[in-house]
Design a protein around this nucleic acid. Structure first.
Length: 742
DNA sequence: TTAGGGTTAG
């Protein structure tokens, strides 16, 4: 490298060098004098003038500091060329900023510069190079620097190991870890956290045990948090408690991150009360702590706590981030809380969210699940580069909305975009085929999972294809697939099969499916109900009684259905025959009037699916007060003519209600949307968007009753409401939402 | 005066 003598450079050249982007052509070289330059730079930017003067005075370190502070790394690097013998401190300063900005290109220039100048970088500088390369994903370059170092210190080894561990190259990391002459707790914690991040929690824990056997190494706060994450991932409450004890003994409980890890561990191990205790004891809570706590609430079925904590967070002054939003949006999706989801979206927009983040895909998911497929699509279109999760959410959304063609079109577009579908995407595609009744197309996609896309089948794929075949009555093919499965059929598969058996009255196969289900989840009432209904439809009342007896013996209770509707931001929930609503009399009168009109139009109540062997008239009476009918009726009398009605139900919608609502939509000339536990039904002018899909699968949705109840924790015996008034960070926008009382 | 930990969707 040719070093220019500074004295030989005119002030003009220096200025051009330091400020290459600045147009200096208006200076003629002869005119340019030092005071003039200073004057002009002082005018445009006082700091630029300062840099210029510092360079002239050879105070390069200070000039570099200013350039680096202004994030003008390129200029700082260029300045290096003009310094006769840059000090290690100058290199280190620039490298430090390159690292901070992940400026690989500039870092490489600095590296080239050190090589060309013949400088043998010391440990300090070399370690920075390793770190920079590793952080920018150039592990090969990092390793080269590492290998070429004549001497290495602990930091060199640790940086290299953590570089490998962070990108999941655990074998390479472990090789170095085993090879290294000496280890400190940094080395252990880099390796342990690497394992945990790659879902190798057990290996992480093993390493921790190994570390305990080495007398020299003690746990620090970093090791402790990684081990806690391992205990959470396994999950092992025993190990978690052991670490908790250690944390208390060593005073590590003053560290916020350790406490967050502790909280998360308890949450993931199912001990939500202990998690909450840790949370409540914390003096300082950052956004991660809040998010971890909120998320754990949602995941353990304490949604009410989750939502109110979210509201608390909003008024605490801590700003939620993408993690927080995605957690809350998913909870909104699960609870069909579209209004709240929309408000969260509004808030996100105001504070500016990253459309590339997973919070954006959570928005797509939320809108799709809350019945607003248009908004889901809008958010999707607003994403500069939608990720696979967003594509999949939309595909699943279309399938659930009874728009299988759109779903399949989306899948083809996904294919064209170059993003590779994964197993979840295929669950969406197959379920679109199910909803559309595309049996052969479904089979084609099913086979392509393995042959064309090189993916393995998951239990979900098998359940979907059995669902498709069973609905079509192709039981032989379904059985062939089941018999050839390398994995054990799961409850969803058997439930699908049982659902198919119900349509075609296939008693023999139904018994086999039900037996399998009783073995997997004897506590699920849905199996008993469906089997009972199959017998009931065949008039085999003796068998129905046996099923009921078994239910009683095993203490399985049929969970009541619950439908709810939001009117003016207030939720109104109904159970079967629910007379507790203050406007029940009006609802009842309206239903009676409606019932008369429906019969005139040709509606015949379908009493086949009422479990009890009761008198025909009583059955009809039961049917008339099903929760979804009550909610729909209430929606109609509470809104102006023409307003679309949106009802949510925790179980599958019942066969008779489905028929009835088709009639109702025509009689009152309204669009009625019902989201049940499985999909959306959009009733309009006497028909439904599902094209009577319900007939083909009665059980699949019902098999999730217990899960739904776990999630919603709604007591069906009450329809009282509790409201939360929430002040957003922006005070003028009041967020109101209501949840059913627990 | 270098290296590191906790929250993440379909």
């Amino acid at each position: 490298m040719k070093f220019l003598n500074l004295k030989a450079i005119s002030s003009y050249n220096l200025a051009a060098l330091v400020f290459p982007k600045r147009n200096l052509s208006f200076f003629s070289e002869t005119q340019l004098s030092k005071p003039l330059i200073e004057k002009s730079f002082f005018k445009s930017n006082s700091k630029d003038g300062l840099i210029s003067r510092l360079c002239i005075d050879k105070r390069y370190k200070e000039a570099v500091d200013i350039l680096c502070d202004q994030k003008r790394l390129k200029e700082a690097v260029q300045l290096l060329n003009r310094i006769e013998r840059p000090s290690a401190l100058i290199y280190s300063t620039i490298l430090c900023h390159c690292l901070h900005e992940r400026a690989l290109e500039e870092g490489k220039l600095v590296h080239a510069h050190t090589k060309a100048s013949g400088l043998v970088p010391g440990l300090f500088i070399s370690n920075r190079f390793i770190d920079l390369y590793a952080k920018c994903g150039c592990l090969g370059d990092a390793r080269k620097v590492f290998d070429e170092m004549p001497d290495k210190d602990l930091c060199s080894w640790n940086t290299m190991i953590s570089g490998y561990a962070k990108v999941g190259k655990l074998d390479e990391a472990r090789r170095l870890f085993d090879e290294m002459p000496d280890r400190d707790h940094y080395s252990w914690s880099a390796m342990i956290s690497g394992y945990v991040r790659q879902d190798w929690a057990k290996e992480g824990l093993e390493l921790y045990r190994m570390m305990q056997r080495c007398e020299k190494s003690r746990c620090d706060k970093f090791t402790v948090s990684s081990v806690l994450a391992a205990a959470a991932a396994i999950p092992s409450l025993r190990v978690g408690k052991e670490i908790h004890g250690y944390v208390m003994r060593t005073g590590l409980d003053s560290d916020e991150v350790v406490l967050s890890a502790l909280l998360d561990m308890y949450g993931k191990c199912g001990n939500i009360d202990e998690a909450r205790r840790v949370f409540d004891k914390m003096v300082e809570r950052d956004v991660v702590t809040w998010t971890a706590m909120i998320d754990r609430c949602f995941r353990s079925g304490r949604s009410k706590d989750g939502f109110s904590l979210f509201m608390e967070l909003m008024s605490s002054g801590t700003r939620p981030n993408g993690f927080t939003f995605s957690g809350v949006l998913n909870a909104c999706a699960d609870h069909a809380a579209g209004d709240l989801g929309k408000q969260v979206h509004g808030y996100m927009t105001r504070i500016g969210f990253d459309p590339l983040s997973f919070a954006a895909s959570a928005l797509v998911h939320m809108y799709a699940k809350c019945g607003n497929i248009e908004n889901a699509k809008r958010v999707f279109k607003g994403m500069p580069k939608p990720d696979l999760v967003s594509w999949t959410s939309l595909i699943v959304g279309y399938a659930q909305h009874g728009q299988p063609n759109e779903a399949l079109q989306m899948f083809e577009s996904l294919h064209k975009s170059g993003i590779k579908p994964d197993h979840v995407t295929f669950v969406g595609v197959l379920s679109a085929c199910t909803h559309a009744g595309l049996v052969d197309k479904g089979l084609e996609y099913f086979h392509s999972i393995k042959t064309k896309h090189g993916l393995g089948y998951t239990a979900d794929h098998y359940a979907c294809i059995v669902d498709i075949l069973a609905r079509a009555g192709r039981f032989k093919e379904a059985e062939e697939i089941i018999n050839g499965m390398p994995i054990r059929p799961d409850k969803f598969l058997w439930a699908s099969l049982l659902g198919g058996c119900r349509i075609y009255g296939n008693l023999e196969l139904a018994k086999r499916a039900a037996e399998a289900l009783f073995e997997i989840e004897p506590e699920n009432p849905a199996t008993y109900v469906t089997l009972g209904n199959i017998y009931a439809a065949a008039g085999m009342w003796g068998e129905v009684a046996k099923v009921r007896k078994t239910m009683d013996k095993r203490k399985v209770a049929k969970k009541p259905g619950l439908s709810w509707i939001e009117i003016k931001r207030e939720k109104h929930a109904f159970t079967i025959g629910d007379m507790s609503h203050p406007r029940f009399n009006e609802i009842d009168m309206f239903l009676q009037k409606l019932s008369k009109r429906m019969r005139e139009e040709g509606y015949i109540p379908n009493t086949n699916f009422v479990l009890h062997d009761v008198e025909e008239e009583q059955k009809e009476q039961n049917l008339a007060y099903h929760s979804e009918k009550l909610a729909v009726a209430f929606g109609i009398i509470s809104t102006p003519p023409g307003t679309p009605i949106k009802v949510f139900k925790n179980l599958r919608t019942c066969v008779d209600c489905h028929t009835a609502i088709k009639f109702i939509s025509k009689i009152v000339d309204r669009k009625i949307i019902v989201r049940d536990s499985n999909r959306f039904h959009c009733f309009e002018n006497g028909s439904c968007s599902c094209r009577d899909y319900w007939r083909f699968n009665f059980l699949r949705g019902q098999s999730t009753i217990s899960e739904m109840f776990g999630y919603l924790s709604i007591s069906a015996s009450t329809s009282k409401f509790e409201s939360f008034t929430v002040d957003h960070v922006k005070r003028e926008e009041k967020v109101l939402f209501r949840l059913e009382q627990y």
